[in-house]
Design a protein around this nucleic acid. Structure first.
Lengths: 195, 195
DNA sequence: CGCGACGTTGATTTGCCTCAACGATTGTGG
DNA sequence: CCACAATCGTTGAGGCAAATCAACGTCGCG
């Protein structure tokens, strides 16, 4: 199993003793398409690393409409970060659904915090990851504020071609904050231009 | 000056030797209303802690319209995180303007990284801060996806009363991603309801 | 084959924008 | 201390992007 440690903590070297500790904290989780990793209102205390497959996290608003926060494919971490990192509560506000059969590795927030304290390497690794994600989030907010739906779609298929090809259009629409009908019209417009 | 260390790194205790190191890395910066801390395309390598005053970071789009990413008041950190934490470049994509006379303390990203490596307390502190900010950003994305302009405005004045009272309405509009005219109409509607 | 899931298309509505004009408030120089 | 300009907020008219509502193709699969 230590090969998965090498995959998750890319470029970090560990002693045998450290590997034992790390492996003891990680749990393998398999999910099939359609299964849920998390539902709104449940207690959240785990982080999940995606080894294979694809998941989506989404929020269901007052009128029942779904809004996708994040897709996760190989190499990504996913959880309900508002519950896990926020100060208000640890109840999930979102759902996480498997949209392609997946193998995940989970670790509890509590264990992860301990690893960060006991192994500086892990702390720096986490800081790097968080900083990168931070920049990405700023970017997404910026795009939501400045770009039209069409531009956001073009950016999306450019930035995440691997996701675009593996999820349904209505999921992409939901991620972009538009309806499937609007996305359909945008796609039509784009294809007619490029002929 | 060590009182400012206590303010910035809330609840952390340091030895005298550590205080000397920390103080040597922090630079005091004073800004007057209207002055810029950062402009697009300049090289970014500093983080800024806000001791007093108020600043805004904004992005200027192709048509010259401004979009506010963040306000910062006492206790907040501000910088161009896309440039500082992103992988693409270290050139600023945004502007940071002082909108109320301010006293800041700056530290370079490079020095801060060293502090994180040399002093686990700082690393841990940074992780906590990042995680909290992470949750906030998810929340903002969620609000942008799910709420109407009116709801976002109500949330804003609820979540940031201290900011609401110290910035101009057109700044709030820009933060919410709407025009000043729209905000004006929303305010009108709200006040007529509450009479 | 027939059903359900998915995507597309059309008609209409709506929330917010744009452009334009006009009060209210604040600051500054005579 | 007033006059004036600049800044800021409000209001109105018209327009547009995307939502809503509804119907219809198309594809895969039991």
């Amino acid at each position: 199993m230590s090969s998965i440690i090498a995959e998750i903590f890319t470029k970090l070297d560990f002693s045998d003793a450290e590997l034992v500790v790390l492996e003891s904290k990680l749990k393998r989780v398999t999910l099939q398409k359609g299964e849920f990793l998390l539902q709104a209102d449940v207690h959240v205390d785990q982080l999940y690393y995606v080894h294979t497959g694809c998941l989506r996290s989404y929020f269901s608003d007052a009128s029942g409409k779904e809004h996708i926060l994040q897709f996760a494919v190989k190499g990504w971490w996913i959880s309900d970060y508002i519950a896990l990192f926020g100060s208000d509560s640890s109840k999930a506000v979102s759902y996480i659904e498997c949209i392609q059969d997946a193998i995940l590795y989970s670790i509890s927030k509590h264990d992860f915090d301990r690893l960060c304290q006991d192994m500086p390497k892990i702390a720096y690794f986490h800081i790097r990851k968080m900083e990168g994600a931070f920049a990405s989030f700023q970017n997404r907010i910026l795009e939501n504020l400045t770009l039209t739906a069409k531009e956001r779609y073009l950016n999306f298929i450019d930035a995440y071609p691997s996701i675009e090809s593996s999820v349904k259009n209505y999921h992409i629409a939901s991620y972009l904050g538009i309806t499937t009908e609007s996305l359909s019209r945008i796609r039509k417009e784009i294809s007619s231009h490029s002929v």
